[in-house]
Nucleic acid binder design. Structure first.
Lengths: 139, 139
DNA sequence: AAACACACTAGAATAATTCTAAACTATTGA
DNA sequence: TCAATAGTTTAGAATTATTCTAGTGTGTTT
């Protein structure tokens, strides 16, 4: 009970800090996403997970929420596969292995990897973010 | 006429070398894709271009052909944006700037950029390819 | 507790892509 | 040269992921 309260209020705080109203749906999804270790989800996978835990949240809300969380910097979107957006709870500096056959992502810590020699962006443009995807296959 | 013949037979050679039958559609698309300097296309953009030049090629064939060319190593697919696959005629070692507002790609030469410190892939897996996308925005 | 702005939802709509099955065409070998 | 055949193209339907719409519900502020 105490524990449940703590988790819940942590999610509420997190949402408030991000300028998002702590609605029931957002709090529940934040619970799933940020309770444990970092993870990668798709809208569909998160929706199934929530439904499996008797949370009543529409798929449209999952999409909205994932994008809102992303805008707020709580998630980061990783694009590896046309037509499938993965959202990562780890927004820190890191990159990914992408297992092509399985469609699965594995983190590569930011300290491990370095990209050097990026040319100056076109005039008037600034680097927003550098994504590295290391595609791997069964050998 | 002589020139046209030469271009045409180069495309045919290229396709034969890749193990693809030089059908009318494939030859025409190869003409568009490989005639000039390297370029980035989507299925839709290539279809419009072909249609604009009175080539009668269905969109389904454009999709098939882009994927066949990609398997054959004639193109490389760049994934930057969920739900939009860009195909690049430059299959050599290079990376991309992605202009987020415009949805446009700009090449970064392979010599310029270097990725170091990639950890060993999971056991039984081998690196297929490393993609770097430098996302830029108006500053 | 009322009022307001914002959020949620089901279901329709959209967009990109893939599938299907019938019609066509390049290649092969007689 | 001309079938046979194996691979290719096509229109249109189907699928998949995602976004939109507009009506209902809820958190916040006073």
């Amino acid at each position: 009970m105490v524990r449940a309260m703590r988790d819940h209020s942590k999610a509420v705080e997190r949402l408030r800090a991000a300028g998002l109203r702590p609605t029931r749906q957002r709090v529940e999804l934040a619970g799933l996403l940020f309770k444990g270790p970092h993870r990668h989800v798709t809208a569909e996978s998160l929706h199934e997970e929530a439904s499996g835990q008797e949370m009543k949240i529409s798929l449209a809300t999952i999409y909205n929420t994932l994008h809102q969380f992303t805008h707020a910097g709580l998630l980061r979107q990783v694009v590896v596969d046309a037509a499938r957006g993965y959202f990562d709870t780890n927004t820190g500096d890191h990159q990914h292995f992408f297992l092509e056959e399985e469609g699965r992502l594995i983190d590569i810590p930011g300290e491990a990897i370095a990209v050097s020699g990026i040319p100056a962006p076109p005039p008037g443009m600034a680097v927003d973010r550098v994504d590295v995807v290391v595609r791997v296959k069964r050998s």
